[in-house]
Structure formats: structure tokens, C-alpha cells
Amino acid sequence: MTTAKSGYPVPVAELLPQARHLVTQLGRMPSRNQLMTELRIGAPKAREILEHLADGQRVKAANPGGLHVVTDPAPAETEPAETHDDEPAEPERESAEAEQVTESEAVPAEESEPVGGAVSEPITVDADLAKLADEQPVKPVAVWPVMLLALPAFVAIWSGWVGLGQLTGFGIVHPLPGIADGFAINTAITLPIGVETYAAYALRVWLSGQVPAKARRFAKYSALGSLALGALGQIAFHLMKAAGMTEAPWLITAGVACLPVAVLGMGAGLAHLIRDTHREVQR
């Protein structure tokens, strides 16, 4: 169960139904970190929701069967039955009823069974609250080993895209003629920067779980498509390099020439979908 972030803080009263639904799913009291993750709230608001849930559990524990007192209706006045004895029968009946009432009142509340014969189990709310209070925020896993592992792949991918760009017509250009004639740039570097950087960012958006569902789906398919295009580009470059080719075939040249435009369109579309936090389509 996930909740989209909003520009305004959500009141606790609106979050309580979601928290109770989470309790039903888990079968127990959720932890503070679980509430923070599922409801996208901070630690103070998560503690306040836990207090409300604990109060509700105490009420259920005090009256587990939902019992209420039902008073017997007043007995209808009836005429005394005729008797041939000298002593009336009403005093004996009243004394018998008094003894029954005394015996029923003498039964302690702990020994009485709820309706239906079901025995309620004690709910250890205080123990759960103490456990939640002792929990500490989980320390995030370090990501620097991943960066170290990705460095060799980055060098190989960069060289492959630059070499493919040179085989397909990318090269040195002067982007500011008449303004800075000495300024030159090799357009082949736009391929690894555009395709691979977008793939890494779209992958992050897809796996974060902090964007609307529509943006998450778009990021998923565009990231997988970018990674597939990157793999095809590396394969094409190494095959042509091994064959000693100095120019790429026109089909490969046409496809590589369209990559910057495709990256621009996917990046702009993903940016608009990420900012659309007011609507979230659930499927």
C-alpha cells in the first residue's frame, strides 16, 4: 500500500483508516518505520498514529466480545395463585429468587465467559509500544561499492559510444561560429551522456516507488528500452571494429542519429509525469 506525496501535509484523521487497514493486513501493530514507509509520513506523525491505534486496542481489550448489559424487563403483575395452605407461597418464591441473584452476583467477572463460549486472548499492547519505542531507524546500505563496480563498465561504454559515433558521422564541430571560433566539441560524447545517463536515471525513478503510477510505468519501459539500445550500440561498434570498417552502414547511421532526439523526448515526458503528483492512476 502506497500513498502519493502531496504538497500539503495530510492530517492524522485521514491517515488513521489507512493505518487500521495496515494493521488488518499485518495481523499486528505495525512499527514506526513501517508507517513512515507505507504512509509517506515523518516520525512525529507516525508516533501519533501509533498512540491512536494503541488506544483503540486498549478499548477492544477492555471489552473483547463487545458485550453490553441487558436488563430484564419488569415482570408483569399477575394475580397470586390460590393455595389451600395457611401460609402464602409468595415469600418462598421471593426468597428463592433472592438466592439466585446472590449466586449470580457472587461469580467474579474473570470467570464469566463471553457470549458464544469464545475465550478472548489477552492483548499485550504495552509490550508492543515498548518494542516500538526501542526501535531505531535502519541505517541505509552504502552505495560506494556499486560506484566502484560501475567504473570499469562506464569506461568501456563511453569508449564504445564515442567510437560508434565517429563511425556514424559524429565528430568535431564548432557550435559558436562568429562568437567563439576556437571553441570546438566532439559530438560523439553526446551518445553516452544521453542514452546511458537517461537509462540510469529512469531506472532510479522506476525503483524508488515515490512517483505516480503512470510515471513509474513510463520510467520502467523507457529504462529497459535505453539499456537495450545501449547493448545493441556496443555490439554494433565492436563487430564493425573487429571487421575493420571505417564507416557504419546507413541503417546503423540512421538509428544512431535518432538517439539524441529520442532521449530528449523521453526525458521531457518523464519530467512532466514526475511532477504530476495531483493525480495518480492505480491499476
Rank of each mutant, 00 (worst) to 15 (best):
M1T: 14
T3D: 13
A4N: 08
P9W: 10
V10M: 05
A13D: 15
H21A: 14
L22T: 04
L22K: 09
Q25K: 09
L26P: 00
M29A: 08
S31A: 09
Q34H: 03
T37H: 08
R47S: 12
I49Q: 00
A54M: 02
G56E: 06
A61K: 00
N63R: 02
P64Q: 06
G65T: 01
G65S: 02
L67D: 05
V69G: 01
T71N: 02
T71M: 03
D72G: 01
D72I: 04
E77I: 04
P80V: 07
P80F: 06
P80L: 12
A81T: 11
A81L: 14
H84K: 03
D86G: 01
E87I: 13
P88V: 11
A89R: 09
E92P: 00
E94M: 10
A98V: 11
Q100N: 02
A109C: 08
A109P: 05
E110I: 07
S112P: 01
E113G: 09
V115L: 14
V115I: 14
A118G: 09
V119S: 10
S120E: 12
I123P: 00
V125T: 14
D126K: 07
A127N: 06
Q136Y: 03
V143L: 09
P145S: 13
L148T: 13
A150T: 13
P152Y: 11
A153R: 10
F154N: 05
I157R: 02
W158Y: 14
S159R: 15
W161V: 06
W161H: 13
G165H: 14
G165Y: 15
T168D: 07
F170L: 08
G171E: 11
V173Q: 09
L176F: 15
P177V: 15
G178T: 10
I179E: 10
I185S: 04
T187R: 06
P192T: 08
P192V: 10
T197V: 12
T197H: 08
A199G: 15
L203I: 02
L203C: 05
W206K: 06
Q210T: 13
V211L: 05
P212E: 09
R216C: 06
R217I: 14
F218R: 05
A219R: 00
Y221A: 11
S222H: 04
S222N: 08
L224K: 11
L224P: 01
G230H: 05
G233T: 15
I235C: 01
I235T: 04
H238E: 12
M240Q: 07
K241Q: 14
K241L: 11
K241F: 05
T246P: 01
P249M: 08
P249I: 04
L251D: 01
T253C: 03
T253A: 09
G255N: 04
G255D: 03
C258P: 00
L259Q: 04
V261C: 01
G265P: 00
M266S: 02
G267C: 03
L270I: 08
I274L: 04
I274G: 00
R275G: 08
R275L: 07
H278E: 13
R279L: 06
R279Q: 11
E280C: 07
R283L: 13
